[in-house]
Amino acid sequence: LQQTPVRAAMNTIQQLMMILNSASDEPSDNLVSYFNNCTNLSCVFKQKFAEAVGQGCIEIGSQRYRLGVRLYYRVMESILKSEEKRLSIHNFSKLLNNNIFHVSLLACALEVVMATYGTPRNASLNDRTIMETDLSFPWIINILDLKAFDLYKVIESFIKAEPNLTREMIKHLECCEHRIMESLAWQSDSPLFELIKQSKERDGQADQLEPVGN
């Protein structure tokens, strides 16, 4: 039979269907196992916690991480409810597909947990010394490979969204904010510089449009 454009298209579709008819809508067990072998934030946190505090404290690291995750979900729901009310929208695809938002929120939740618990009681004296120096802010942003300025962006919303934070914890988060604004946000790889550049460009355009007298 002569190959017409329509027949060629039909054949291509048929070929694709033949390949995919027996394929699954879900990842195979093999693929799931590859996914499960990926390093995730939970692994990173537990590993770095154990490195800083001592391998005997792995379980404490897991507990701290679980608490951080609970707080992350709780605050995220509260933030979304308040954004829903403020913006009258129910679809948060853009925000919820933003990985930096999630890591920032999780980092803030973990910082609250870490600052609340402080030093594990059963850590040895040497371990305690390491922990006090290594696990305090900005340890969390370093191990999660998060830019300080991105953490800064969630702190205020976090405080507003969680009414049960103690006055001390609010002060602690405020101190983190100050450290970010005073030094950490000005490191050479900070996203702040790009924002300043964009802002200057916008201002430049606005200046050009405005009559000289204004």
Binding site: I79, S82, E83, R86, L87, F92, K94, L95, N98, I100, F101, K153, V154, E156, S157, I159, K160, L165, R167, I170, K171, E174
Partner: peptide, 21 residues
Amino acid sequence: TQDYHFGLEEGEGISELFDCD
């Protein structure tokens, strides 16, 4: 939260900070 200095403008929220409309 009475001692905390809020930096977001009135009517602004986290969506704006993460470039969401």
